[in-house]
């Protein structure tokens, strides 16, 4: 393995800082930030349209609808822009692929209810499934949202079906996002990784023991 750029030159140096590993590039962090903001706006405006107490508080139905429609439509934009960056493409292909260790991770975590000590690559199987779920869900929400937005696109039976899918998938998405935020809230080092781009090597060994960071991407 090639030494990392920020690896200490002299291993004997006194009180060397904890070794940091590069986990996310600047582009990846911006994609995450942009997606999170858009998703946040989408969820908040959805709540204002859907929950009567919030509707009564906020009102302004037309404005809220417009913001919801456009923030939803824009949701894939950060990821699409990020596709121009190699590091992001590399991580996408990591998220896409399931190795043997991922199946092992899933089985073990489902059985033990804890991911402690279970080997994982740069992303564990849960993260891989979550990212795929969000990607699929956003596409389905945009499709069904467009059917409801442009009412002349489809017969009324499909529009009712689109409402059905949009409503129920929204609940699943809310549950998924809550879980995502909950897990992040329990892991400060993971949040640091997404905020600054690097993580402590002890954390990488503990959470992603099979991850072999390199600085090629």
């Amino acid at each position: 393995m090639t030494p990392l750029p920020d690896a200490p030159a002299a291993p004997t140096a006194p009180r060397q800082p904890a070794r940091r590993l590069r986990r996310f590039s600047r582009a990846e962090r911006w994609v995450h930030r942009g997606t999170a903001w858009l998703m946040g706006i989408c969820v908040f405006t959805a709540a204002c349209l859907y929950l009567p107490p919030l509707s009564e508080l906020v009102g302004r139905r037309r404005l809220v609808v417009t913001v919801h429609e456009w923030s939803g439509l824009m949701l894939p934009a950060p990821l699409i822009a990020g596709m121009f960056f190699r590091a992001l493409r590399a991580d996408l292909s990591r998220l896409n692929r399931f190795g043997r260790h991922d199946w092992h991770w899933l089985r073990t975590v489902l059985r033990k209810r804890s991911k402690e000590g279970v080997p994982a690559g740069k992303f564990n199987a849960g993260q891989k499934l979550y990212s795929a779920f969000i990607a699929g869900a956003v596409l389905v929400m945009i499709g069904t949202g467009l059917l409801m937005w442009f009412t002349h696109l489809a017969p009324v039976l499909w529009r009712t079906g689109a409402t059905f899918v949009h409503d129920w998938l929204a609940l699943l998405l809310a549950a998924g996002i809550t879980g995502h935020v909950w897990m992040a809230s329990k892991d400060p080092e993971a949040r640091l990784g997404m905020r600054t781009g690097s993580v402590a090597s002890w954390w990488a060994r503990r959470e992603h023991s099979l991850w072999k960071p390199d600085d090629k991407d």
């Binding site: 896409n96 692929r97 795929a132 699929g136 596409l139 899918v165």
Partner: peptide
């Protein structure tokens, strides 16, 4: 190996589009 293996992510996305 991390970049190989079954494309489960893609299958999940396509599956969700089908279900949708």
């Amino acid at each position: 190996n991390e970049r190989h293996g079954a494309p489960v992510g893609r299958r999940v996305v396509l599956g969700m589009l089908g279900l949708g």
